[in-house]
Simulated scan of single mutants.
Amino acid sequence: MTFPALVTERRDDGSIVSQVEMLDDARLPPGEVSVDVEWAGFNYKDGLCLTGGGGLVRTYPHVGGIDFAGTVRDSTDPRYVPGQAVVLTGWRVGELHWGGFAGRARVQADWLVPLPLEMNTRQAMILGTAGLTAMLAVNRLAHAGVAPDDGEVLVTGAAGGVGSMSVSLLSRLGYQVAALSGRPQHGEKLVALGAKSLVERAEFLAQPDKPLESARWAGAIDSVGGVVLGKLLKQIRPGGAVASLGNAGGIEINTTVLPFILRGVSLLGIDSVMQPYEARLEAWDRLASLFDFPAYDGMVEEVGLADLPEAAGRILRGEISGRVLVRPR
């Protein structure tokens, strides 16, 4: 039985091209579990993989897709049985290992998580890597002592997938959320997700830069990095924390030790790629009961495999908000 897949190739001249092909199981990489993919997500990393950016893909031909959800087709691992709904995020799938931009995938059993009974596969991919990362960040902030009554929590890159889901999750937990974005046209959607105030990125960065600035935020979730994170750290209140999980604005930060030694600020790194199984399971179970899917519906776009090369350009140019879902069949 064959299935469609978006196969990415590197031509002799070094150019990267992707096109839909029909494959069979013999083409799939080794693994313990085969999954009939019902939905995949489309992320910034996927845009890089489809264009050859970042050196994420090492061998060609390649099938991208860093997260997907579907049902088990067959398994040599007793934890998974045919027909069981599962989700996969991380583990360099879609980068070093073939991913979810296909009607079928074969992966290691340890990379999968069984879906909570309250969640279907489409909902799992509305969340995807973005939702898991946002949940991990919210959990870390709470464990670091940032409570709903402590004051405003800033979410940067708020119009993106991780940012918008962070806004929603924090709001549902009772936090006062301020949403920072360079795309003011998405302000109404962010308010609908629970943002209490909107911060325009240019205005935020235009303020005079000082070694230590007025303490404004109880905590923050930052998906931008670069100059935004550097400035943000100087504005966190004493005892506050920042969860850092992205680098769309750059991998370098310019800051001082003052926020850390004078205000006791914590910088919390969030790695969603290599999270252990138990942490993933806990996060997915919490997402199933906490996330407001109806409120997020206006932030969801659906595409097919053939649409992905065009979508790659859009996501790398910062023209996509919310989540893009891929129908591989």
Rank of each mutant, 00 (worst) to 15 (best):
G187P: 05
G187Q: 10
K189N: 13
L190E: 08
A192D: 13
A192W: 01
G194M: 05
G194P: 03
A195V: 01
A195E: 00
S197D: 12
L198N: 09
R201E: 11
A202T: 02
A202N: 09
A202R: 09
E203N: 06
L205G: 00
Q207S: 04
Q207C: 03
L212H: 05
A215M: 06
A218T: 06
G219T: 05
D222P: 01
S223I: 04
S223G: 13
G225W: 03
G226E: 03
G226Q: 02
G226L: 00
G226S: 06
V227D: 15
V227F: 03
V228M: 09
L229I: 02
L229C: 05
G230F: 02
L232F: 07
I236R: 05
R237E: 15
G239L: 08
A241W: 01
L245D: 05
L245F: 04
I251A: 14
E252H: 12
N254P: 00
N254E: 12
T255L: 05
T255R: 08
T255C: 09
T255W: 06
P259L: 15
I261N: 11
I261W: 11
R263A: 07
G264W: 03
S266G: 04
L268W: 04
V273W: 12
V273K: 06
M274K: 15
W284R: 07
W284P: 04
D285G: 15
D285Y: 08
S289D: 15
F291D: 06
P294H: 13
P294C: 14
P294W: 14
Y296N: 04
D297Q: 13
M299T: 03
V303C: 11
L305G: 11
A306N: 07
